[in-house]
Design a protein around this nucleic acid. Structure first.
Lengths: 234, 234
DNA sequence: CGAAATCTTTGCTGCCCGGCAAGTTGGACG
DNA sequence: CGTCCAACTTGCCGGGCAGCAAAGATTTCG
């Protein structure tokens, strides 16, 4: 356990302005977990015993409906908190969290959340800012679902992923983790067939390049025009 | 201003366990507003100078898209906080809030929120529980939009409204404020035409009674079956 | 009390996109 | 290096629901 050094978290905005000694105390109470690609970090309806910080990798937050359909609520990148049910007075996790690649995660017992928030005000406000962004994000996507056609929604989603996690390559912005047509479909409320058709159409027009579990945005600007519904039929 | 008595808020869960003297102090810093039906309480993108408590009436939270389409994010009932941008570190309101009937609202300057939360822990946690519910709600509706057909979504929405604000009448549960077909359409991502067709179909089957800006749920149980997608073609 | 404004109903047309089916490709793994 | 499987592509069909149009019902207001 002594391997958990404060340098793992000292660079994160969430922990800015906290004294090194306090950071050490925080780290001493953390467990570190390796989660293999495809495994769950926490589970929907499960007792919210802990909250988590994703140190490395990417995770996917998924809701499953009673009849077994899956909806991807969001992707989590390294440095973000997840499973913060306690901060919102919840007793259970609202969704599943799945490692998209091999991940490293820190976990703290749930009751520590209130203690951290009280001792380190910036930690509390930082968390709530994150919650605010997620609420905003959820509502934005609800508005999109209500008002936009499938092509615009998929374009918006691909652009968001590329901007959040994109890695510069010679072709353009590559989404940094494996993502299938099915995954994109589950984020946008459509089917993998339709996503596949859209991506090939876009590829023919030079907007993106894509392959097996891989999407690269080549022309963000023109894709954005599409996302905004101003169809240029080039 | 001395008319603002603490009894206006002393019954609310949010203010439980706060000493009467403190409640008086809280009330002294509040402004009370009457808002006429149809008028705005705060506006999307507007500077978030205040946060609000709806004392009486109902309000509708609406997002407007760049091209002018409207989406109803939620309805607020008496006793609920609204416009709590400060609690989430936002500088502007994320949506419009419109009085659905004549309303009475208390307003406090935004910077007081942090002060209240610090002085009255139950106020802080109460707010965040509300935020948690709203986040959960937003995600639930996103999942519904992704996975359900229009009829199920409308059924779910009508049931939610009836359960949250329903008033018992001899016919059944009456939604307590004026709500048009257009409003329901803007909550469910469909058109007023489709909502109208659904309501007439349901009325023929005895599930609801409805009229101009009025909806009564007659048979919640059978409507729930519909909402869950188990079509009984009675 | 009459007329305008708003809300609602209903028919018709058409098309977006989901569902199905079948074939192809690319990686993983022994 | 060959086999297997998951991921992807593509054509076809049809239904759910939006869009348009027009008439009917209810409320409001001069």
């Amino acid at each position: 356990m002594s391997r958990l050094d404060r340098s793992l978290i000292s660079g994160l905005p969430l922990f800015q302005g906290i004294a090194p000694a306090d950071l050490d105390a925080v780290m001493q109470q953390a467990r570190s977990l390796r989660v293999a690609k495809g495994d769950a970090i926490f589970e929907q309806e499960g007792d919210a015993h802990s909250f988590f910080l994703l140190l490395d990798g990417y995770a996917r937050v998924v809701k499953t409906t009673p009849d077994g359909q899956q909806v991807i609520v969001r992707y989590i990148s390294a440095g973000e908190l997840m499973g913060i049910a306690q901060a919102l007075g919840r007793k259970t996790y609202p969704a599943n969290a799945i490692a998209v690649v091999d991940c490293v995660v820190l976990a703290w017992p749930g009751q520590l959340w209130a203690e951290f928030a009280a001792r380190f005000p910036s930690f509390g406000t930082g968390t709530y800012n994150t919650v605010g962004e997620r609420l905003n994000d959820a509502q934005t996507r609800f508005v999109e679902m209500s008002t936009e056609q499938v092509e615009q929604r998929v374009a918006n989603t691909v652009l968001r992923l590329a901007n959040q996690t994109g890695r510069k390559t010679e072709d353009g912005l590559l989404i940094d983790f494996p993502i299938s047509r099915q995954d994109i479909a589950e984020m946008t409320g459509t089917t993998l067939h339709t996503v596949s058709r859209l991506l090939t159409a876009w590829e023919e027009r030079g907007l993106v390049k894509s392959g097996r579990q891989r999407v690269t945005v080549v022309e963000p600007h023109r894709l954005l025009l599409l996302a905004e519904g101003r169809a240029d039929k080039t």
